[in-house]
């Protein structure tokens, strides 16, 4: 049970959140212009690093806001949280 610091509500139990996978994967501007391969990458391929991962969470049982976190998937340590639309912070 992670303790996730929601940027709007503060630290809350993981059970209050919904996971949204990799962050910063934008919906393609013009899907029709993409090849099948490029479209497949958007649909099905997400990074899966062992280490720092920028990911999306939604505080579904709280403020219902989506936000992003940088978490280390090897340790589950959350290094940063930031609001949707903000750039990924640089983690030293």
């Amino acid at each position: 049970m992670l303790l996730i610091p929601c940027p709007w509500c503060g630290p809350r139990d993981e059970a209050e959140f919904h996971y949204g996978g990799q962050a910063h994967v934008a919906y393609p501007e013009d899907p029709a212009a993409l090849s099948d391969e490029e479209w497949a990458r958007y649909l099905f391929f997400r990074d899966n690093p062992k280490g720092l991962f920028a990911e999306r969470w939604s505080h579904t049982a709280g403020c219902r806001r989506w936000f992003n976190a940088v978490r280390d998937t090897a340790t589950n340590e959350i290094h940063a949280v930031y609001r949707a639309g903000e750039p990924r912070p640089v983690i030293a």
Binding site: G20, S58, R64, R65, A84, G85
Partner: peptide
């Protein structure tokens, strides 16, 4: 909500 907040704010 997901589309609104994450893609089309």
């Amino acid at each position: 909500e997901e589309w609104l907040q994450t893609e089309w704010p």
